[in-house]
Design a protein around this nucleic acid. Structure first.
Lengths: 341, 341
DNA sequence: TTGTAGGCGTTATCAT
DNA sequence: ATGATAACGCCTACAA
């Protein structure tokens, strides 16, 4: 059996397809009540719904929003995906989710695939890579999208001219550094994420500037980079094991890393925060359920995802009046006051 | 600027659109090398890619897979989503992700929306509701989809005749019960999930059958239901607080619940597993990062998602030779041997 | 107020 | 080996 088409409806209601289309799309187009009724009955009878494919072909625009994430199973990205999918539905759209597996090539490929699908817009969740070739490739795609009238919204800095809504990551790093300093910490290890990704550098810079302001000479051998994952956090600690006695606090570039770090420290019988304090970035839900609860800088992932869809779908939203998102420190129980080392 | 169409390519290559279509789609259709070359050059020059919308209209089938989840930010569902999205891309498809917010109405609506988009298939991640009206509504949609040739794959039981790949949840409950009994536990609290969802009952039944086999009379007032979330697990414990001294173990219907339970117990200075043992279901990644690591029954979420796409996309896969997925107990550190109460 | 017809980009059928 | 054309379902000028 096939789905009913507008023709079937027209036939059953004894009207033309144009009339059917009008009662469907032109709310205030003059159609006689009798005809309108007939059409609506036929639609119901046949369970007719317009074909999105045909509409998309005709209008050269689909009711689809593309979302590119690095790993949908990572709480950061799934929080964003939640915002995007829920907001999309609210606007009558659907979200196409692409998982790059943290691979640059894949990410670029997805730009193309999504455009082939005539998406109404594309949301880029992850921050950009510092790699120049990548940025150029990205720039080409952004330009092409603009020519086609497809908005692309980044939820983290890309170093490419494009609409971006994001928290100030330099400030995030400062927040972290200042908080630790305020609590008397001077010997701090910094566990970064993937150094190839822009935000990693920005957060570290912010952290270092906080150290400088506080007159603290940061030991650069106490700075490490890996990836924004749990495993990476754990592994970083393994490599750090012989220097744990030198430090009183660890600053992690995101919550995942902190969770890995936390596990390592617990396994090695260090008490948080009594022995070592811990801060990170994100405020993913699990930070409320670890022991101790993690002090972290909240990034409004859900809201960012939500807003990006709004920018794409709502014609009233001007992309020149982008909202400002403020990073906020959430103090919980992973930082202790350290008077003196 | 507009995207190049097959006509543009045909014009540039001085051939007909039919020829272009052939070099694109009919690999072994006889086309002279010279013409083929011209066409390929034009395609490259114009950066032409076929419009998915037009293909979808023409073929009455899109390269889209619909996925319905209850909460994409829930590790259970995001693991499935990861399997689905990655597998989809591998087949040249894209995944449309719908978030029902654990609302039945939404779920039903998504069936319809996805069909409007001409999806190649639909994957239902969550188990069905016991609600009869829901099951009927679901049945209608499944039947309609079948008539349209759209496969629907459930990754958990629905009590509706449809293709389902899933673990045996009764067995899961038995596994849990037996493991606890083997370790000498006789006074066990059971924290279930949403009792309206089919698997919740199945797991509990399995657990109870294990108790019966062991000759243990389960205290039914020690059985509670809430939801499959962290918050619900925590809240269940709050309501249980005055009975904690009666029990030696807690069996949770999934890992989320266990994480909430764990947090409550820790806040109340109970040591796991020395004071109370804990088991659950899922084996989501975080269970490896809690303290202690959670003993749980592994459900292969990623693989289920992956397989469902394979069934939809791969014409060689017969849906009558569905794979069997075995639930497996992962013993970690949340269960202690209890000789006697 | 309603109907007719062309075209969106493809693919497939039928000619040549 | 290649080309012309109809059709997929919808929307929208333009006609009536």
């Amino acid at each position: 059996m096939k789905k009913a088409t507008i023709k079937d409806v027209a036939k059953m209601a004894n009207v033309s397809v144009a009339t059917v289309s009008r009662v469907l799309n032109k709310v205030d187009y003059p159609v006689s009540d009798a005809v309108k009724k007939k059409v609506e009955d036929a639609i119901e009878e046949l369970e007719y719904t317009p074909s999105k494919s045909a509409q998309s072909l005709k209008s050269n625009k689909s009711q689809l929003i593309g979302l590119i994430v690095r790993d949908i199973a990572d709480p950061y990205f799934s929080a964003i995906a939640k915002g995007v999918t829920e907001s999309a539905i609210a606007y009558g759209y659907l979200a196409l989710v692409c998982n790059s597996k943290r691979d640059m090539e894949n990410e670029l490929k997805y730009y193309d695939v999504l455009m082939q699908h005539n998406v109404a817009g594309i949301v880029i969740a992850g921050a950009g890579y510092r790699d120049e070739a990548f940025q150029q490739a990205q720039e080409i795609r952004v330009k092409r999208a603009r020519e086609l009238g497809i908005p692309i919204i980044a939820l983290a800095p890309q170093n490419v001219a494009m609409t971006t809504i994001s928290v100030d990551n330099h400030y995030v790093g400062q927040l972290l550094g200042n908080y630790l300093v305020e609590n008397g910490h001077h010997h701090i290890a910094y566990v970064g994420g993937n150094a190839e990704i822009i935000v990693d550098q920005q957060r570290l810079d912010g952290f270092l500037s906080a150290m400088r302001t506080a007159g603290i000479q940061q030991d650069t051998t106490l700075i490490t980079h890996g990836d924004f994952t749990w495993e990476a956090g754990y592994k970083a600690m393994e490599n750090f094991s012989d220097r744990l006695h030198e430090i009183t606090a660890i600053c992690c570039a995101n919550d995942n890393i902190a969770i890995g770090v936390l596990r390592y420290l617990k396994e090695n019988n260090l008490i948080i925060p009594e022995n070592i304090s811990l801060v990170s970035v994100g405020d993913i839900i699990i930070t409320e359920y670890t022991t101790p609860k993690l002090s972290t800088v909240k990034i409004p992932f859900y809201e960012l995802g939500e807003k990006s869809v709004e920018i794409i779908c709502d014609p009233n939203v001007q992309s020149d009046e982008l909202p400002h998102y403020e990073a906020k420190l959430i103090k919980r129980n992973s930082v202790a006051r350290r008077c003196k080392l």
